[in-house]
Write a protein that binds this DNA or RNA. Structure first.
Lengths: 236, 236
DNA sequence: GCCTGATTTTCAAGTCATCGTATGATTGGT
DNA sequence: ACCAATCATACGATGACTTGAAAATCAGGC
C-alpha cells in the first residue's frame, strides 16, 4: 500500500486509509496501532495521528488508550460526508449501495424541485434549462450527455435555496456516474429527455407539485431499473 | 472562552472551536494561528493541530502555510455532520435554519415511511407503534411526549433499512426539539396524534404511497406553521 | 523616477523525533 | 474471587527543522 502524492502527507494518508476502511480491507483484522501506522507508511506520528483524527471526525474510526484504534460499524459512519461518499464510489460496484444512493435521491430531488419552483430566481432556472439543452445537444456523446444530466440535477438542488440540499451534490454526482454502468447493462436506456423536460416545464409554470411529481417519476423509474437488474437487493 | 472538561483536551477544544465558528464568532475577524490557539487555550500544539484538523475534516476550516487557518464559507460546511448539526442547534434560535431543517425532513421522512412500509419487519413496526402509543400515553407531559414523538419519527428512519436515512436521526432529533419552541409560540399546537396514527395505519396496511402522503402532510403542516410564525423567511 | 520582473525574506503551517502521562486490559499473587 | 502490579497503547507536550506561499526588497531597463 503506497501513499498517493501531490498533496500533503497527512491528506495522502487520509485518502489511503479512508479508501481501505471503506473498501472493507480492515474488516476481519484489527486496525494498526499508532506505531504500526508510522512504520507501515513510513510517516511520523504527527501525520499518522492527524489522519486518524480526521477519520475519527468522519465516524470511521474510534481510538482509546490501551484498546487501540478500531474501525467503527458502518452505522456510525458519516455517509453523507463528501469524502466518505467518494470512497464508497471508488470501491467495487455494489448494487446495494447504488440502490441506497438512489433512494436518497428519491427523497431529496423531488422536494428540491418543489422548492426550486417556489424560490428559484431567473439565473437558477436558466442553469436548469442550460442543463436540459446540453443533454439534448449532446445526446450522441455519452460523456457530455452525462455531464449535462448531472448539471441539470445539481442546478435544481442549488435552486432549492436550501444549503442542506446543496450538500448532496457530490452524492448525486456519484450516483449518476455509477448509474451509467448499470443502465447500460439493463438496456440501451439513457436519461429520458422528455421526463427531464417535464420537470423544467413545471418549474417554469410555477407548478411546484407538478415539478415534485415529475422528478419523483424519474427517480422511481431509476429504482425500478435497479430492481430489474438485481431483484435480490429489494426485500418483499 | 474556556475549554469544557470531562473529555479529552482535543475533544474539548474541538467543541469550543466548533461552537464558536458555527455561532459566527470568527466572522469578521481572522481565525487564530496555530501558535495563538496554543496560548489562548493554553493547549499544546498537538491538541490545537488535531482539533483544527478535525474541523477541517468537517469542512469548517482550511489551513495553508503562511496564509493561516481560515473559516470556510457555510457552503463548504458538512451541514449533515452530527457534530455540525448539534452546534447549529446550540446557537441562538434562527427561524431560517429551522425551516431548512424541516425542508430536509419533508424530503426524507415521507420516503422513509414509503420504504419502511415495503421493507420494515415486525420489530421495526412495533417500535413505530410503541412511539405512537407513548405519544398518546404521555400527551399531558411535554417532555415525555416530545421524546415519544422523536422515537416515532426515528423508528421510521430505521425501518427504512437505508443507512443514509438513519444518518439523519440526529438532525430530526434536533429539529423536533427546536420545534417545541416555535409551535408553542404560534399556538397551543402539539404534535397531532391522528396525523401520526394515519402514518402507522398506512404502514401496517402495506400502503406505501399512503404512508408517504400521510407523512408528507405532517411535514407540510409544520412548514406552514413556520411561515405563519415568520413569513419573511419564505420567498415568493 | 518609475514600472517590471526576479530574488530574498519571512511567517505560518507541515513534518519529525522524543519524551512523559493516563488509561484500562491482562496477569499474577494472595 | 479479589486485589494489585504490569504493560501496551493512545494522549499530550515540546523543540527543532522543512516547506510553501505571500510580501518585501532589489535590479534592470525604459
Amino acid at each position: 500500500m503506497r501513499t498517493p502524492q501531490g498533496v500533503s502527507l497527512t491528506y495522502g494518508l487520509l485518502e489511503t486509509l479512508g479508501q481501505s476502511i471503506v473498501s472493507g480491507f480492515y474488516d476481519g483484522r484489527s486496525f494498526p496501532t499508532e506505531a504500526d501506522l508510522c512504520t507501515q507508511f513510513s510517516a511520523s506520528r504527527t501525520v499518522a495521528r492527524e489522519a486518524v483524527k480526521m477519520l475519527t471526525a468522519k465516524g470511521l474510526l474510534s481510538a482509546r488508550p490501551r484498546q487501540g484504534t478500531k474501525v467503527e460499524p458502518v452505522a456510525k459512519w458519516n455517509l453523507l460526508d463528501p469524502d466518505v461518499t467518494r470512497w464508497l464510489m471508488e470501491r467495487p460496484f455494489s448494487n446495494t449501495i447504488y440502490r441506497e444512493f438512489t433512494e436518497v435521491r428519491l427523497a431529496i430531488e423531488p422536494v428540491a424541485a418543489y422548492l426550486a419552483t417556489r424560490r428559484g430566481d431567473r439565473a437558477d432556472i436558466r442553469r436548469i434549462r442550460d442543463g436540459l439543452n446540453a443533454m439534448r445537444d449532446h445526446a450522441a456523446e455519452p460523456d457530455q450527455a452525462l455531464q449535462a444530466d448531472i448539471d441539470f440535477h445539481v442546478s435544481i438542488l442549488r435552486a432549492s435555496g436550501n444549503p442542506f440540499f446543496w450538500q448532496l451534490r457530490e452524492l448525486i454526482n456519484t450516483a449518476l456516474r455509477l448509474s451509467i454502468g448499470i443502465t447500460n447493462k439493463v438496456s440501451g436506456h439513457t436519461a429520458s429527455i422528455p421526463a427531464h423536460e417535464a420537470v423544467l416545464i413545471a418549474i417554469e409554470k410555477g407548478d411546484a407539485d407538478g415539478a415534485h411529481a415529475a422528478m419523483r417519476a424519474i427517480l422511481l423509474e431509476s429504482l425500478e431499473l435497479i430492481e430489474i437488474y438485481d431483484p435480490t437487493t429489494t426485500a418483499e
